[in-house]
Each structure stands twice: as structure tokens, then as C-alpha cells.
């Protein structure tokens, strides 16, 4: 009996390795609507992996690669708000819930796991979609991040310039690894 279990386990672990997807194209942006001016930044340097067998997913976004329209804003974002020298990356590690396997069409899913921004980690539940396009997988998500939760401090004097929460958009295209 023990032997059978072992074989089953070994067999199960082989396809687990083979069903890995890694992101070939990533897009992460955030948007903050404020009274004085809207703030927007885009990043195409994130890396991500998805395990289609276990539903596990992880991504890592280099903070310094967020591009802003205004250079000064980009400098302040790195130097004063996200402190990218101290906390160079924002990461997510978790599991896709509601994933029905590699079937055609758009699937409504949830990502449950740990989101780390500015060195602060919180358990989150993020809604999103997963779509199989030929051999590729497209993962999309839009969620709100409250700056206060991640200890991103906004100077009182400029509260008008920066909203207290920002909308994060994620668009990853995966291919089998």
C-alpha cells in the first residue's frame, strides 16, 4: 500500500513540474484619481509564474521600473514613497481559486495570497480572469490598494495630489515553460 502511494505521488509530481507557465509579457499599472492631477505609472518589467496543476501563482515587480509622465514624480515615488532602494520589489505569492483547468474561454477566478508592497505583507483576495488562448494563458486583474495599509506615507501638505488608494491593473500573458 505504501509503495502504491509513493508511485502515485511520484507520478503526480511529474506533471506538476510540466504544467508550469511563465509570463512572456507583463504589464502592471496603477492609477490614482486626485483633485489636482491624476497619477499614472506603467511597468513592463514584472516577472511571473503560474502552476496550472496546483493553481499557484507568483509575481515580482521591480519598483524602479514604474514609468511616470513626470520625471520628478518618478524620482519622488522611488525616493520618498516606495523607498525602492530599501524595498526594490513588490511581490505576490498565492493560489488561483476557481480555476477549472486548461479549458477554452474566460474563467472568473480569485487570487488568494500574500501581497507585499513597500516591505509590508497582507493577505489579499483579488478578483480576476484567466483565459486560454491557444497554448497561452492570459491573466487579468484590477484591484484597489490602500496606501495606508502598506505604510506608504503621503505628506499632509500634498494630500490633494495623491489619492489615498490607487487602482492597480495587471495583465500577464503566460506560455508553457
Amino acid at each position: 500500500m505504501q509503495i502504491v502511494k509513493l508511485i502515485v505521488l511520484l507520478l503526480a509530481s511529474v506533471p506538476a513540474m510540466a504544467q508550469r507557465y511563465s509570463a512572456e509579457k507583463t504589464f502592471v499599472s496603477f492609477f490614482s484619481k486626485a483633485s489636482v492631477e491624476d497619477i499614472k505609472a506603467e511597468n513592463t518589467k514584472a516577472v511571473s509564474m503560474f502552476d496550472a496543476t496546483s493553481g499557484e501563482v507568483a509575481y515580482s515587480v521591480p519598483i524602479k521600473d514604474f514609468k511616470f509622465a513626470k520625471s520628478l514624480m518618478q524620482e519622488h515615488f522611488n525616493e520618498k514613497y516606495l523607498e525602492s532602494e530599501k524595498y526594490p520589489k513588490s511581490t505576490f505569492e498565492g493560489k488561483i481559486v476557481g480555476f477549472k483547468g486548461l479549458v477554452e474561454g474566460v474563467q472568473q477566478v480569485h487570487a488568494q495570497g500574500k501581497l507585499t508592497i513597500h516591505g509590508v505583507t497582507h493577505d489579499v483576495d483579488i478578483p480576476g480572469t484567466l483565459e486560454k488562448q491557444a497554448d497561452r494563458l492570459v491573466m487579468k486583474s484590477k484591484f484597489m490598494v490602500k496606501l495606508e495599509d502598506y505604510k506608504v506615507r503621503i505628506p499632509q501638505l500634498f494630500w490633494k495630489n495623491i489619492a489615498e488608494q490607487v487602482e492597480v491593473t495587471i495583465d500577464f500573458t503566460y506560455q508553457p515553460k
Binding site: 509530481s13 506538476a16 509564474m49 507568483a58
Partner: peptide, 18 residues
């Protein structure tokens, strides 16, 4: 003895990314 190896392989996606 084998179980931890399998769990490791499945759990540390972030470590692999790094």
C-alpha cells in the same frame, strides 16, 4: 521523506522567479 521535496517544488514559485 519524499513529501517535503514535492511540496518544495510546488510552493516556492517566488524563489524560482528571483
Amino acid at each position: 521523506l519524499l513529501t517535503p521535496c514535492v511540496v518544495m517544488a510546488q510552493n516556492d514559485l517566488l524563489g524560482e522567479l528571483e
